[in-house]
Design a protein around this nucleic acid. Sequence first.
DNA 1: GCCAACGTTGGC
DNA 2: GCCAACGTTGGC
Length: 154
Amino acid sequence: MAWWLMKSEPEVYGIDHLAAEGTTLWDGIRNYQARNFMRSMAVGDQAFFYHSNASPPGIVGLMEVVETGLVDPSQFDPQSHYFDPRSSRDQPRWDCVRLAFRGRFARLLSLEELRSGFSVEDLAVVRRGNRLSILPVADAIAARLLETLGPVQS
DNA sequence: GCCAACGTTGGC
DNA sequence: GCCAACGTTGGC
């Protein structure tokens, strides 16, 4: 079982949306590195939900991968912000996973706090200007995060 | 294959 | 709104 950190803007899709829906398709990823991380996910993997472009930004909850290898439908939709004219049904370019809500942490673990307790080697999200929306988290670092945050409340 | 121009993310 | 970081694109 692997650990991940996945970012989303709470105004667009935050932990409250996921809590209400139960599960969601993590679609709209248009970065090859992030896509490749999704491709390496397995059912049962856990992901920290990170609120980006928030005040303050930080980790708010926990998710679990419940389905992998799904074609991202938004790439075919001309109305979608994520439409990709280079994609075809025969040769889709983007895929995604389905995630389930596992709970909120009792408090937010802010980026500022992450920077004071973790190095760039530990957790890429602490690097200034980091743009990758999906990042792997080493087991030992995940354990430290969970230790800091305590159990989730579902 | 190089690299300049451009676009996007996201903190501040 | 600014800007750092960095991926992508396209001319050559």
